[in-house]
Amino acid sequence: MTVRGARPSDDVPLAALDRAVWSPLHAVTPRPEPPYPPFFDAAHRPEDHLVAEGADGSLLGYVRLVCPTPLACNRHVRQIQGFAVAAGARGQGIGGALLRAACAEARRQGATRITLRVLGHNTPARALYEKEGFRVEGVLPGEFVLDGRAVDDVLMGRSLTA
């Protein structure tokens, strides 16, 4: 497995991966229905993504890393705004590798902090993020109502300088 920058040709396999991993555990949007939009668009560019590629060329996961706001005073922060690992590839260190690559890329871009948001009930993702050095920095209680149940939005982050 290698982690590399996404290419425009990754659009179709990434869209398929995204649909395959959709789950109420992490999604606040409805289950995708046809016609499916492209994975990449003006707001979701290939250059904002790192992908985990298997030895056979299959895409096993991705992470999307962006500036959280257009403000100059916030340019030292990068935010993970998309993260997925194929169900059959979980438990093999791919998620951790993608997170470490995202931190390295954020540092390369000059960032000193990295943040993300995760649903409070997504225990596996929270454990992975904590293992990779992210800490809870805030909680928006009941920020979402999913299947009739209030779900917290957990804000996590870490320094990239230590």
Results as ranks from 00 to 15, higher is better:
residue 1 M to K: 08
residue 4 R to C: 01
residue 6 A to Y: 02
residue 11 D to Q: 08
residue 11 D to E: 13
residue 12 V to D: 15
residue 18 D to N: 13
residue 21 V to M: 01
residue 24 P to R: 05
residue 27 A to M: 03
residue 28 V to Y: 09
residue 29 T to L: 12
residue 31 R to S: 11
residue 34 P to Y: 01
residue 36 Y to R: 11
residue 36 Y to S: 10
residue 37 P to E: 15
residue 38 P to M: 06
residue 39 F to S: 03
residue 43 A to P: 00
residue 44 H to E: 08
residue 45 R to Y: 06
residue 47 E to W: 02
residue 48 D to N: 07
residue 50 L to P: 01
residue 50 L to A: 02
residue 50 L to D: 01
residue 51 V to D: 00
residue 55 A to S: 14
residue 56 D to A: 15
residue 56 D to V: 13
residue 60 L to Y: 04
residue 60 L to A: 12
residue 64 R to H: 02
residue 64 R to S: 04
residue 66 V to G: 00
residue 69 T to E: 13
residue 69 T to V: 09
residue 72 A to L: 13
residue 75 R to F: 09
residue 77 V to Y: 02
residue 82 G to T: 01
residue 83 F to D: 00
residue 84 A to T: 00
residue 84 A to I: 00
residue 86 A to I: 10
residue 87 A to K: 06
residue 88 G to W: 11
residue 89 A to R: 03
residue 92 Q to E: 14
residue 92 Q to Y: 07
residue 94 I to V: 15
residue 95 G to P: 03
residue 95 G to I: 01
residue 97 A to K: 05
residue 98 L to E: 01
residue 99 L to K: 05
residue 100 R to N: 09
residue 100 R to D: 06
residue 100 R to W: 02
residue 103 C to E: 14
residue 104 A to S: 15
residue 105 E to L: 15
residue 109 Q to W: 06
residue 109 Q to L: 14
residue 111 A to W: 03
residue 113 R to I: 07
residue 114 I to C: 12
residue 114 I to D: 02
residue 116 L to C: 11
residue 118 V to A: 10
residue 120 G to K: 05
residue 121 H to L: 05
residue 121 H to W: 11
residue 123 T to W: 10
residue 124 P to F: 09
residue 124 P to M: 11
residue 125 A to F: 10
residue 125 A to Q: 04
residue 127 A to M: 12
residue 127 A to P: 02
residue 127 A to R: 15
residue 128 L to K: 06
residue 130 E to G: 15
residue 131 K to D: 12
residue 134 F to N: 08
residue 135 R to N: 14
residue 137 E to A: 14
residue 137 E to W: 12
residue 140 L to E: 14
residue 141 P to C: 04
residue 143 E to L: 04
residue 144 F to E: 07
residue 144 F to L: 07
residue 145 V to E: 14
residue 146 L to Y: 06
residue 150 A to R: 14
residue 152 D to N: 04
residue 154 V to N: 03
residue 154 V to T: 04
residue 157 G to I: 11
residue 157 G to L: 08
residue 158 R to S: 10
residue 160 L to Q: 12
residue 160 L to W: 11
residue 161 T to S: 13
residue 162 A to D: 15
